[in-house]
């Protein structure tokens, strides 16, 4: 299993991760090593085995339909990088 630098660029793009061009090679190498190591999983026959998404075989608990939260906008927006008129601001999005 070998990942090239284009693959690294593509994944970094999907994950919106700024990665320096100069680091691409290092990441390509270490990800290739890791996926080579992970390859050993392919040797196991898993036919008919249900994937295990959770450690415990529990079922989803349900919450009553009640409004329990009150307005905490000031508190939440105190830690926001940029707000105005109660809105979070981001660079203009063109649709």
């Amino acid at each position: 299993m070998s990942l090239d630098q284009d693959t690294i660029r593509r994944i970094a793009r999907l994950a919106r991760l700024g990665v320096d061009e100069s680091e691409n090679e290092t990441y390509a190498r270490s990800l290739s090593d890791i996926f080579a190591f992970v390859e050993q999983l392919n040797a196991v026959d898993t036919t008919g085995i249900e994937p295990m998404a959770h450690p415990l075989d529990a079922r989803q608990r349900l919450r009553p339909d009640e409004v329990t939260e009150s307005n905490q906008r000031d508190k939440f927006q105190k830690i926001a990088p940029r707000v105005e008129a109660g809105l979070y601001l981001v660079p203009r999005v063109i649709e």
């Binding site: 940029r82 105005e84 008129a85 809105l87 979070y88 601001l89 981001v90 660079p91 203009r92 999005v93 649709e95």
Partner: peptide, 10 residues
């Protein structure tokens, strides 16, 4: 998308 100094409000 109304203008907030060239920004979008969420």
């Amino acid at each position: 998308h109304e203008d907030f100094h060239g920004a979008t409000g969420i």
